[in-house]
Each structure stands twice: as C-alpha cells, then as structure tokens.
Computed example of a mutant assay.
Amino acid sequence: MGSVSSSVRLAATVHGRGDTRGFISALIATAREKGVSAFVGDGTNRWPAVHRLDAAVLYRLVVESAPAGAPLHTVAEEGVPFRDIADAIGRRLRLPVVSLTAAEASEHFVGFLAPLVSLGSPASSALTRERLGWAPAHPTLIADIEDGHYFEG
C-alpha cells in the first residue's frame, strides 16, 4: 500500500476546552499578570482561528481522502481582529482593555507572544472546504473565550 502526503497548515490560534498552552491561554495569563488586556495599535491585525475539534475532523478527512500533495488550511475563521480577542479577555477578567505602541507591547507581552501580537496572518480555507467538504461547526474563537472555560481554576 502506497502513501499519500498532504501539507496541513493549522490556524495561528487553535482553541477549545483543554487548551492550556496556546496563544489564548498565554494572553489571559499576561492580562491577569499585568492588570490589563492589551492589543497593539488599533488592533485590526487579524489572527486566523479554528476550534480544536474542527481541526480534528479535518485531520480525519485528510487521512481518509485528501488529494496527493494538496496544501490544506485548517482555518474556520479567516482572521479575528486582535482587538476583539483583547476585548473578550478584558470582559471575562473585568479588566481594562488598552492599546499599546509596538515598543510598549515588546515590554508588556513576554516570551513567544512578544513578536507575534502585532502580526496579522489572515488565511483562507476555501479550497480545503471545497476539496474535502470540511465544514467547521464548533464555537468561534470569541464565543469560546466568552464561554468561560479558559478562566476556570
């Protein structure tokens, strides 16, 4: 039996219950530590997102039926404005939401977040949906943040 390879690109933000080490958990930890939920500039830079259960469905579809060599994007939301993410975190933590300059952001966000928070990387999964019939059905990133599981414990 031969093998078929495909390239699968995950969204920058993979979210869902059990996400304790991803971007959203790190943003929440930073907001708690600093006392504000922050974004850079006007916050219009966008991050693609996918719920982890929708990503799992896509991986199954890839194994079952992906065309050889197909580049596939695991993206449910093409780009969530970073300000919307900061606003949702601020609401849940009851913290002010503030805009930072790039210089302030490099001091505010530490570790792997610092160089990433001002980037935008919208991505489309239109071809993936067409090729595999993939239809994300789980909560959006903002709905998942507002659900509250990120703030338990």
Score class of each variant (00 low, 15 high):
M1W: 13
G2L: 12
G2K: 13
G2T: 11
G2H: 01
S3Y: 04
S3G: 14
S5D: 09
S5P: 02
S5M: 06
S7E: 15
V8M: 15
V8G: 14
R9C: 03
R9L: 11
L10A: 10
A11K: 06
A11M: 12
H15C: 02
T20P: 02
G22T: 11
F23W: 12
F23I: 12
F23E: 05
L27P: 02
A29N: 11
A29G: 10
G35C: 03
V36M: 04
V36Y: 14
V36Q: 15
S37T: 08
A38G: 15
F39P: 03
V40M: 06
V40F: 07
D42H: 10
G43F: 09
G43S: 05
R46H: 13
R46V: 08
W47T: 05
W47Q: 09
A49W: 00
V50Q: 09
H51P: 07
L53Y: 12
D54I: 03
A55D: 13
V57T: 01
R60F: 09
L61P: 13
L61K: 12
V62F: 12
V62C: 08
V63Q: 15
E64Q: 13
E64M: 09
S65Y: 08
S65N: 14
A66F: 02
G69P: 02
G69K: 03
A70D: 00
A70W: 02
A70M: 07
A70T: 10
P71F: 01
L72H: 07
L72C: 00
H73W: 01
T74I: 10
A76K: 06
E78F: 10
E78M: 13
V80T: 13
P81L: 14
R83G: 15
R83C: 06
D87N: 01
D87M: 01
A88L: 07
I89S: 09
G90H: 05
L93R: 08
R94Y: 12
L95V: 08
V98N: 13
V98M: 01
S99C: 15
L100F: 04
L100H: 08
T101P: 09
T101E: 07
T101H: 14
E104M: 06
E104D: 11
A105M: 03
E107P: 08
F109D: 01
L113D: 12
A114K: 06
L119Q: 14
L119I: 04
L119H: 15
S121R: 11
P122S: 15
A123Q: 08
A123T: 10
S124A: 00
A126E: 13
A126I: 10
A126T: 11
L127P: 03
R129S: 00
E130G: 00
P136S: 12
P136H: 10
A137V: 13
H138P: 02
H138K: 10
T140S: 12
D144W: 01
I145C: 06
I145H: 03
E146M: 14
D147K: 13
D147L: 02
G148H: 04
E152T: 09
